[in-house]
Every structure is written in structure tokens, then in C-alpha cells.
Amino acid sequence: MNLKELYQEIILEHGKNPRNLGKTDDFNKDAKGNNPLCGDNVHVYLKLNGQKIVEDISFEGSGCAISMASASIMTDLIKGKNENEAKEIVEDFLGMIKENPELKSEYLQDDEKTKLMCLSGVKQYPMRVKCATLSWHTLVSALENKKEEVKTEN
């Protein structure tokens, strides 16, 4: 995938009209993330029910197209999953962005995998990987009730 394809797919799909942008009513978990390199900010809100299923998820934030599109795609496909499924999907995504050639999680449908693979193009731009992973780290932080803001230093 070249750069233009990376940007076009992301922008067409999510960059200009991010899904789940806003603040979930009655959220019961949330966390903030910050990527000092780009100045990307994201605040993820979750509403987990008694069975620990993500009933609703949303985000607020600002930043580059990659970070916003990534947050948008993430919230789209985490909705309806339970906590453990969500964590596995995050791990799968981070593994793919880092080194794995493909996504492995059985909790992801094929069309969901295709959507996520749009972001695999950032592998070629190591400085921008943080942009793609920010909202995902923030989601984990929210699930684990961490108080500190996520910083993408790694």
C-alpha cells in the first residue's frame, strides 16, 4: 500500500466523518490519551453493562487524520464486544501495527479485519505509528480504570 492509498482509504472512510465522535451518555469508564509528537488528544468514553459488554463507546479529540480515523474505526468495531474480546482485539491490532503481517483475532469479522488493515500502511512511517495506536492504548487504560493520561512514548 502506498501513501496515497493509505490516506485516501482512511479519509474516505473515517477521517472526514469520524464515527462515534462525542461523549457517551452515562459512560462508566473513560481515559485520556495524548501524543506529544503531533499534539493528538483523545478522550475515550465507555459504557459497560453488568455482563461487561461494551454497550456504547465514543471519543472526543483532535489530531491528525491517522489518529482520528484510527479512533473512529476502533470505536466502530469495539461496540458490542465484551471486555476480554475488546482487549484481545486491541492486542491483535497493536501486534499488526508493530510486526504481524495480519490480524488473527477470532472476534473480528473479515470485513472488520479489512477495515483495520487500512491502517497497516502506517508501518512504513515509524514516526506515525503512535498516531494510529493512541486511541487503542487509551481504550485499554479506560478498561483498566487507570487514572493517568496515556502518553505514546513507546
Binding site: L3, Y7, L37, C38, G63, A65, Y125, R128, C131
Partner: peptide
């Protein structure tokens, strides 16, 4: 367009 998206495209 976010400046970092600009910089990445220019870098290409």
C-alpha cells in the same frame, strides 16, 4: 489537514 499529515506526504 493536520500538519503531521502534511509533513508525511511532503516526505514522500
Amino acid at each position: 489537514i493536520h500538519p503531521h499529515d502534511i509533513a508525511t506526504i511532503l516526505d514522500e
